[in-house]
Amino acid sequence: MVRVCDIMDRDIILCYPHDSVKEVVHMMKANQFRPVVVAHESGEVWGLVSRLAVIRFYGEDLERTRAEDVMRPYRIEVDPQWPIETAAELMKRTRYEHLIIVDPHAGPMRPIGILSSFDIVRYMSGIETGHYEQILKMPQEWSTSSP
């Protein structure tokens, strides 16, 4: 059985609730445009700032808005030992694009990883990491279209 901890990303991008959207945007840019987890100084997860949430402020003063004002509050406790199927069902049901994985033994809502829908696509594709070279020899109809 494949578990959430087997495919989750352990590299979490964290900010504080009072950090500005400007800081969040720079964090995203420095980290392959991944979403930013908002955590209280105690280490407890409060929410998640997605890319779609920050682009609402395009052209505005990003220093005036705080992460806590744009984050989606996050209350779900996803255990790293859950089977992938449970996490996938939760994503489908809640329409969350990312699940924050918390350590059940470290205190309330302590983040230890993040699982994206793309991580699950990677699992579903059946491609083992490091085996991309074989897939690149795929049929010609898989092409990039351009006008």
Partner: peptide, 18 residues
Amino acid sequence: ILGLLHVEDIVDRMAQDE
């Protein structure tokens, strides 16, 4: 189709503008 508009390019532009 001519192309795509990607959310990360918008975030990137916001960072550059700042």
